[in-house]
């Protein structure tokens, strides 16, 4: 059964949410999901751009009280 791991990258600038996401994608299995929490609104654009480029899947993006919840699925 696919697992979902939450990656709390709120209020982080260095290395930042996208770097944390890319690093953690290596540690999960194909079909598993990562939910990135980010307070940087740029993540809502940066993450989908990278996910599309490398062929993983976007599951969804929501914003709750200034925190973006970006859910991605490892596809390969």
């Amino acid at each position: 059964m696919p697992q979902r791991k939450v990656l709390d990258a709120r209020n982080t600038f260095c290395p930042g949410p996208l770097m944390e996401l890319i690093a953690n994608m290596k540690l999960i299995g194909v079909g598993d999901e990562l939910e990135v929490l980010s307070t940087d609104k740029g993540s809502a654009d940066d993450v989908p751009e990278w996910i599309k480029k490398v062929g993983h899947q976007m599951v969804g993006t929501t914003e709750v009280n200034g925190v973006w919840h970006i859910v991605v699925r490892k596809a390969k």
């Binding site: 600038f13 290395p15 930042g16 996208l18 890319i22 940066d46 990278w50």
Partner: peptide
């Protein structure tokens, strides 16, 4: 570099 800027931190 892995992300869409030359450094992960925007100001850097």
């Amino acid at each position: 570099y892995p992300v869409n800027h030359v450094h992960a931190t925007a100001n850097v």
